[in-house]
């Protein structure tokens, strides 16, 4: 009885450290007009304090994602780890193939990877294009899938999102009928 009383009395103090109501409210979904993003272009928006990458992939880039020379080097090519909602657990890791939406936070230790879309270059002749994290050298492909042999353990996370109109994306809200919480992502 005393233990129940003690825990009940301490609970408010414990709970007060969890995100406050306005902090949660500030994490409400945001709308993004994706019609202005040209093929090959990426924009970064901020949601819940995280950078959200929205990349418009070209047909060539999409074709590369399915080729074995890319997928053979990946740690989790089929998105089996819970790093995305079910509707993004496909080869392009998105609702529409051309629009990639990622939480731009490296799964190693939380740095921000940068887009290195062009193949080759500084990252080696066999670099197929993707994301590179400058902190500890983690590499991801153009679907945010992590390559083998880098410190990051998991693919870049995909946040919940849907299209409320053809070119109007809402980040932070699932398509109707799907319940996916961001806390289900194994690691941001």
């Amino acid at each position: 009885m005393g233990a129940i009383g003690t825990v009940s009395a301490l609970w408010p103090f414990f709970a007060s450290l969890s995100p406050a109501r306005d902090t949660i409210a500030a994490g409400a979904p945001i709308d993004v007009d994706v019609s202005t993003i040209k093929p090959g272009q990426q924009i970064t928006v901020v949601w819940r304090g995280h950078p959200i990458f929205i990349l418009h992939r070209t047909p060539d880039e999409l074709k590369m994602l399915q080729e074995a020379k890319d997928t053979g080097l990946l740690r989790d090519p089929d998105s089996q780890q819970p790093q995305q909602p079910s509707y993004a657990a496909n080869w392009h890791r998105s609702l529409k193939p051309e629009h990639l939406v990622l939480i731009g936070v490296c799964t190693h230790l939380g740095c921000i990877p940068r887009l290195e879309a062009a193949p080759g270059g500084d990252l080696g002749a066999n670099w197929p294009g993707g994301y590179f994290c400058p902190c500890h050298g983690s590499k991801y492909d153009l679907a945010g899938r992590v390559f083998n042999g880098v410190p990051a353990p998991l693919n870049l996370p995909v946040p919940p999102y849907n299209y409320i109109k053809d070119n109007l994306m809402r980040v932070g809200e699932n398509p109707p009928g799907i319940n996916f919480e961001i806390s289900e992502i194994e690691q941001i």
Binding site: L17, S18, P19, T23, G49, Q187, I188
Partner: peptide
């Protein structure tokens, strides 16, 4: 793990 981190931060990121 993730719940602990959110609790430590009191938000969705260090803020």
């Amino acid at each position: 793990g993730n719940a602990i981190v959110t609790w430590l931060w009191g938000g969705f990121v260090v803020d």
